[in-house]
């Protein structure tokens, strides 16, 4: 292919070599070691082979299912809203008639410069019972009593979703903005002449053009949302009544907070991995359906 001979092509392995070493050491090796864990009950320094015992136990573990449910709720509610907002923002920021585009872009992207720990702590303070958000809502007489943002099971989830939206919308917006650079203005001009409305243009030109990026961001968001840890840990600490405990937090608890059982934790990690795999395949299938 490409008229390059085999000898030259072998040089390619030299380029890849370093990454393969790193990958083997810090990805393959840990995975192989963790496979061993899955089938054992590794409590502290004593290990016993339990076969599929960890999976049976997991099946009956209500905490596992409820934290998995919470992770899914964050995924189903937050990711679509975030991606939709990100696309709309990208379209608006891409518009030629908008003045100071670079400035607006910078502002929208700004949340991404904060670390997950920092912004979680800021959100926790803003949404505390006598925090600024409640004070503000009371001052404009929208509410008469403070909203228990962090102490009500539903509200706690909402705060985490709001936090995620704040932090990650601008991040995804960048990808869409980049994707829009590849759509030529002539298509829109032609559509305009044909009398297509802005919404029609959005539905029939913009969205199809962005499809590979929607897929990319959706897969990426799915993976990271199912591993959600820093935010619930620092904002609500999983409370109240475990209503915002995610599966990543539960795995962490089983490894480090409870009587440590790495075998059980590893089994749960594998379930999460399997779910991510299935979801990603579905997302790719859906995205490529029309091709």
């Amino acid at each position: 292919m490409n008229g390059v001979n085999e000898k030259t092509n072998r040089i390619g392995w030299w380029f890849i070599g370093l990454s393969i070493v790193g990958f083997a050491a810090f990805m393959i090796y840990p995975i192989v070691s963790s496979v061993k864990l899955v089938f054992s009950s590794l409590s502290g320094d004593s290990s016993t082979f339990v076969g599929f015992g960890n999976f049976v136990r997991l099946f009956h573990d209500t905490t596992f299912w409820s934290s998995l449910g919470n992770s899914f709720l964050f995924l189903i509610v937050e990711v679509p809203i975030m991606l939709l907002f990100a696309i709309i923002l990208a379209v608006v920021l891409n518009s030629k008639t908008l003045k100071l585009r670079g400035f607006w872009r910078l502002l929208i992207f700004l949340p991404c410069v904060t670390s997950l720990v920092s912004y979680s702590i800021l959100f926790k303070m803003l949404f505390s019972a006598d925090g600024l958000i409640n004070k503000f809502l009371e001052n404009i007489h929208l509410i008469s009593a403070p909203i228990p943002w962090l102490t009500d099971p539903t509200m706690a989830k909402i705060v985490i979703i709001l936090a995620l939206l704040w932090r990650w919308t601008g991040y995804n917006m960048i990808f869409f903005l980049a994707g829009l650079q590849n759509v030529s203005d002539e298509i829109y001009e032609a559509a305009e002449i044909d009398g297509a409305s802005k919404i029609q243009q959005f539905m029939h030109i913009t969205l199809p053009a962005l499809r590979p990026i929607i897929l990319f961001t959706a897969v990426q968001s799915t993976i990271s949302t199912l591993q959600l840890f820093d935010e619930p840990m620092n904002i609500t600490n999983g409370g109240p009544n475990n209503s915002s405990t995610t599966i990543a937090m539960y795995i962490y608890n089983v490894s480090f907070k409870y009587v440590p059982n790495f075998g059980y934790a590893a089994a749960m990690s594998y379930v999460v991995m399997f779910i991510i795999l299935v979801l990603s395949v579905i997302q790719m299938k859906v995205a490529n359906k029309d091709d």
Binding site: T63, S66, G239, P240, N241, N242, N253, K257, Y258, V259
Partner: peptide, 16 residues
């Protein structure tokens, strides 16, 4: 005992 953390997590899901 050894499982106090686990019990307290379960309590926090039920006592409310």
């Amino acid at each position: 005992g050894i499982h106090s953390s686990e019990v307290e997590n379960i309590l926090s899901g039920n006592l409310g």
